[in-house]
Design a protein around this nucleic acid. Sequence first.
DNA 1: GATCACATGTAAGAAGTTACATGATTCT
DNA 2: AGAATCATGTAACTTCTTACATGTGATC
Lengths: 184, 184
Amino acid sequence: MENDSLLGFALLGLIHQQPMSGYDLRKIFSSTAMGSFSDSPGAIYPALRRLEERGLVRGKADEAASRNRRVFHMTTDGQEAFKAWLKQPVTRDDVIRRTGDLMLRFAFMDQALGAKRAIRFLSQFAEETADYIPILKLYLESHASEMPLSGRLALECGIQEYETRLRWANASIAVYEQKRKEKK
Amino acid sequence: MENDSLLGFALLGLIHQQPMSGYDLRKIFSSTAMGSFSDSPGAIYPALRRLEERGLVRGKADEAASRNRRVFHMTTDGQEAFKAWLKQPVTRDDVIRRTGDLMLRFAFMDQALGAKRAIRFLSQFAEETADYIPILKLYLESHASEMPLSGRLALECGIQEYETRLRWANASIAVYEQKRKEKK
DNA sequence: GATCACATGTAAGAAGTTACATGATTCT
DNA sequence: AGAATCATGTAACTTCTTACATGTGATC
């Protein structure tokens, strides 16, 4: 059960927002800012089948459409698995090697878990990121002399990306807190 | 022949810098800023074998060391394949879906191809990135109202990352040109 | 003598890629 | 009628993950 690729969770998240067919999902990946996912049928249909086999989604023939269209909706188990995925703590390793996963989780977060959880996620993300940046900087300082110029610059790009994400996370926390005040 | 994973090229690039064993390569991935690559033996040793089968590297028993150590060095074919990989043009699709590949290529670039090629790469990278940013911004503007807040923020993070990379690329071009002037 | 670091591998399984295959419906 | 779009799928291949397996040499 506790086994799913990032694509699987992306599908799950989109189906969570509203029931959809494989073709709908492909179109989202090919035409929106979620273009980092593959829209190939060889990826999507097998992934949907796996989700269905695990009982996380269920597909029903779309009777409104005349075509051979199967619309998938989420099951209760699917809801649970999805929320469990979203609730995972943000680790150092996530921040270093799975930024894409983290961003996907966050993108689905406030609809499924609410603003409070989103803020908690951002805080964890900011903390892990803030801790990691000085490590990278130290590494750069102490190894710069042995590295080729382009290697050095590539590492600097990485550091700047982390700094950008840190600023973004703090700014996003502020957005949520601003919103909270407005409500009161 | 024209078939290789990113890991394969990372190995090729490191072996290009100096001959190394599988264990050396694993240590680099586990202990340096190249930590985004897997240091697991199940990834590295098969990848090295594939490179050897394709004739891009050749392993020799290390007679200096008493242990069972194989040191890989690059062949002429390997040099060619490596340089051909580095010389590929930077496409829009690379910028969107394969930033990691691009950064790896750049990190190895000036040693293998020289500063002039590095500048060309950065210019292409900057151009494709600069073209793509307004598309994302337009997308955000026109879809912001239908998107959940965290989705909107996640997209904004993506845009800021592209902007960071664009600034970085232009700054890096300036570094190379500065260096060129100093030489004269 | 035990443990740690060195050093290389294999096997099973998961998941993606590319390319092919098929058929229905709508538009021109 | 032909082309484009809708819609779903399969098959072969590649590569990665996790876990297991094995043995050497140095250090305590």
